[in-house]
């Protein structure tokens, strides 16, 4: 019998209403519906979630290892981009 592996899916779980979905991990499933079902059983069995997103891993595009220097290093010495660089007047309150 020919064996075809199920495609890989990335799972994102929202832990509670109002928070964003976070990457929880990946799993194999034959289709989207079963991927959601498997995600429920693999990643939310200890009450971790209220909503699940799945996407086939092949549809995720990412930065390349070789681009790291040009992509991220230039930001290292630009501390003025951090909000902590500025004094915030007390009247502004919590930010």
């Amino acid at each position: 019998m020919e064996r075809k592996d199920w495609p890989l899916w990335e799972v994102f779980v929202r832990s509670k209403a109002g928070l964003s979905h976070k990457h929880a991990g990946s799993l194999h499933a034959p289709d989207a519906e079963m991927a959601i079902s498997n995600a429920r059983d693999v990643y939310t069995r200890r009450n971790e979630g209220v909503s699940i997103w799945v996407v086939e891993s092949k549809y995720i595009h990412s930065t390349q290892e070789s681009d790291v220097e040009s992509m991220f290093d230039p930001n290292e010495d630009k501390i003025y981009r951090h909000p902590t660089f500025y004094d915030i007047p007390d009247e502004v309150g919590h930010m």
Binding site: W6, L27, H28, N38, D41, V42, R45
Partner: peptide, 11 residues
């Protein structure tokens, strides 16, 4: 038959 299915059926 698959890791995911193993976990699901045991649930």
């Amino acid at each position: 038959p698959e890791l995911e299915e193993d976990i699901a059926i045991i649930n």
